[in-house]
Amino acid sequence: MQLSPDDITAIFLSLKLAGTVTFLLLLLCTPLAWWLAHSTSILKPIISAFVALPLVLPPTVLGFYFLIIAGPSGPLGSLTEALGLGLLPFTYWGLVVASLFYSLPFVVQPLQNAFEIQGRRPMEIAATLGARPIDGFFSVMLPLCRPAYITAATLGFAHTLGEFGLILMMGGNIPGETRVVSVQIYNHVEALEYGNAHSLAALMLGFSLLILLLLYSFQGRKLIGFKS
């Protein structure tokens, strides 16, 4: 294993980014997925389409528009500058905002499916037992949907960890700030440092495989549990 201090910094940055994004996505996607699961609004197909966009768009498209929208002449850029936050591109929080959108469907969809499968019934029963909606959600719905939350968190985390094209477009390759593992691997390959690239790439492959293995073995057990 050849890991330079820069490589270690990139690994911690990637983990921090994926962790932050997953946490924020779970918070944001719970109400969004709930609304999508239960709404009959005419807005639902439009919102659903926007949520699914990152699944089909190449990251370069997202990165390109992010640079424009979050730049000084774009609406998001004007807003962040007016709020005294400066511009988002080339910053860690810029990566967080872009990744929230990029990984959104991976968190929304498992939650939405779970809410749809459970239906309104558990909440109604909780209500007849005197639980307020919020109370019912936390003490009945959330435990019922725990497998979906684990799936959503794992996929959101793993997908953000594997993000590359978008970060390359708007990150600016800054050590400790926006130079995540995937970008660092790319740098090594471009600089013909294949040994370093290998170490990091193998680490990434092993780690991602491990996460998915854990997820699927957990899901397998849970499914059997449901049937009995």
């Binding site: 730049g71 000084p72 591109p89 080339f90 477009m169």
Partner: peptide, 11 residues
């Protein structure tokens, strides 16, 4: 890409 960073005004 460097040119793009400047032409979008981000740098």
């Amino acid at each position: 890409q460097t040119l793009q960073f400047v032409s979008t005004g981000n740098a």
